[in-house]
Every structure is written in C-alpha cells, then in structure tokens.
C-alpha cells in the first residue's frame, strides 16, 4: 500500500493529509517536506489522518519534529484518527501535546 501525503498552507496553517502507512520507508520524505515549513511563520500544523492506517515510531517522530522544530508555539492537531492510531499516540504520551479532534475546529 502506498502512503500519500499532501500539504497545503493557508494563512499560517499547514494542513497535511496522510493516508495509508506512515512508517520507516516514507517518514523521511514527509520530514523533508515539513522542514520547508521552518521559518514560514506557521502557527498551526494540522494532520488529517482519517485514511491513515498504520504509524510506527518513524511516523511519530515526524509529528514530534513538527512540534519541536517548526516552532514551539506551533499548535499541532491530529484530526480523524482511528482507534489503532489513537492507541499508539496515547501509548507514547503524544496526546500530551497534540490537539486531538474528530473533525477539525480551530
């Protein structure tokens, strides 16, 4: 299964749609995309993950990266996660710093 991601930037909000798998084989490519957001005055990074089925630590690191490197005041949202993804997020304590929502509300 291919994983696809799509990034749109609107008014200081980066909207990133993830689908399929976010694992060791493609997390680096997403991380490279996110690096282009550094210094762009991004206030919010919103991951839409309705169609994301699998995330490993490589994928989680990309989300941590978004919070650490794009800006510590940047709010990071995780929207539409299924129970499998939520289990992993909670297990690793990432729910402490993510805004977790079923549908996006800013």
């Amino acid at each position: 299964m291919e994983s696809l991601f799509n990034i749109k930037i609107e008014n200081g909000t980066a909207k990133i749609t993830l689908s399929g798998r976010l694992d060791t084989s493609n997390a680096g490519a997403l991380s490279d995309e996110l690096k282009t957001l550094i210094g762009q005055d991004i206030q919010k990074v919103v991951f839409f993950v309705n169609d994301l089925e699998y995330i490993s630590s490589a994928g989680l690191r990309v989300i941590i990266f978004a919070k650490q490197k794009i800006g510590t005041d940047t709010r990071v949202y995780l929207v539409g996660a299924n129970s499998t993804i939520l289990d992993v997020v909670k297990m690793t304590g990432m729910d402490n710093f993510l805004f977790i929502q079923d549908t996006y509300q800013d």
């Binding site: 630590s57 989680l60 941590i64 919070k67 650490q68 297990m91 690793t92 710093f97």
Partner: peptide, 14 residues
Amino acid sequence: PVEERPIGGLGIFM
C-alpha cells in the same frame, strides 16, 4: 515536555 524529548528511544519503548 515535548521540547525536551529525545527523538530516539521510542521504537524500543513501543
């Protein structure tokens, strides 16, 4: 806190 998290070590923890 997220700012202090090392980027490694998560895999083994999982």
